[in-house]
């Protein structure tokens, strides 16, 4: 009940943030040079461009355009891709592509956490020792590589040179799960390695701080095994920052998937955003990027609430 109230209390600022973010997005779209309708259908006559401008509200001022887009979204009309002689509903694109991107992000998060949690705990436990130093050096190197560079290197090494996996493509898990996993390995690793580095370093710092807390010393002095102390008494309170970071990254990762999905030809929302940008489909860009900001806010709020459940100290502080 308390959580529900908390959620409702956070709903208003959440909506406000989404409105402000999407409005700023509209502003940026309108600042792009050139006539947006002409760029959407470059080979079309002026009369068609005028029709599209009228339909989308691009012939109005900034507020008029934004209101037209927002009221459309609120009534389930997410806009269209415009062509000379037809159009395509963006809602259909979202329905097809969003699940693929969410799956990719989920896999990347799982892999990143699976790497980061044991590595962060052990590094913190062995602070300053050889393992910690080597792990820090490797992680620092990994995090300095952008995802797209890792993607191209992985593709060259694992797909072309070693021939272990395919460099491009996507198969739904329902169609062929084995092939699905095989095709997702490279994109997931390209996204996950950078994340894992960040997570490990966050967890390591928090665990080092927690290990110095009195209750940890007390637990150790009671004769509880090191493993039990680490997992039960240290990891749980130290995971708050990690959880928050992971949640924040959920939104940010959709942005990261734009390049990764394009390189590996995965038909997710990032792939669609890339081509919408290339084709200057302004309405589609606005809707798809707005979706990222909505998800960003949603995941942030959700993790805030989850943190309150997992860490009683936060709840008490807020109360």
């Amino acid at each position: 009940m308390n959580i529900a109230r908390q959620f409702l209390r956070r709903l208003v600022p959440m909506i406000a943030i989404v409105v402000i973010a999407t409005f700023l997005l509209s502003l940026l779209m309108r600042l792009l040079p050139g006539d947006p309708a002409a760029i959407m259908v470059p080979n079309s006559p002026q009369e068609v461009r005028d029709q599209i401008a009228h339909e989308t509200g691009l012939d109005r001022g900034l507020f008029g355009y934004y209101w037209k887009w927002l009221s459309g979204v609120l009534t389930g009309h997410f806009g269209k891709y415009y062509l000379n002689g037809g159009s395509r509903e963006i809602s259909a694109v979202i329905k097809d592509t969003l699940p693929i991107t969410l799956l990719l992000i989920l896999y990347a998060q799982i892999v990143a956490l699976v790497i980061a949690i044991p590595l962060g705990l052990v590094s913190a436990y062995k602070e300053g020792k050889r393992f910690d130093k080597i792990a820090s050096a490797v992680l620092f190197t990994t995090v300095s590589f952008p995802g797209f560079a890792l993607a191209l290197i992985f593709s060259l090494v694992f797909a072309v040179k070693l021939g272990w996996v395919d460099p491009i493509g996507y198969v739904p898990p329902t169609e062929n799960f084995g092939q699905h996993i095989k095709l997702m390995i490279l994109p997931v690793m390209s996204l996950a390695l950078g994340l894992a580095s960040g997570y490990t370093r966050l967890l390591r710092t928090d665990v080092i701080a927690t290990l110095k807390d009195d209750y940890v010393t007390m637990a150790a002095s009671k004769g509880i095994s090191n493993r039990r102390v680490l997992w039960r008494h240290v990891f749980r309170p130290s995971s708050t920052t990690l959880l928050t970071s992971a949640a924040l990254n959920m939104g940010g990762l959709i942005g990261g998937t734009i390049v990764i999905e394009t390189i590996f030809v995965i038909p997710g929302i990032g792939f669609e955003i890339f081509y919408s940008i290339g084709a200057r489909q302004i309405v589609a860009m606005q809707t798809l990027i707005a979706l990222i900001s909505i998800m960003y806010v949603f995941f942030n709020t959700t993790v805030d609430l989850l943190t309150q459940i997992t860490d009683p100290r936060t709840r008490e502080r807020r109360a």
């Binding site: 191209l152 060259l156 072309v160 395919d166 491009i168 390189i263 030809v265 890339f274 081509y275």
Partner: peptide
């Protein structure tokens, strides 16, 4: 017919047989 914008990936995919 799949759009592989990156020429290097298109080439890699043909070499590997993915395309």
């Amino acid at each position: 017919f799949t759009n592989v914008k990156e020429g290097s990936q298109r080439a890699a995919a043909v070499r590997k047989g993915s395309l």
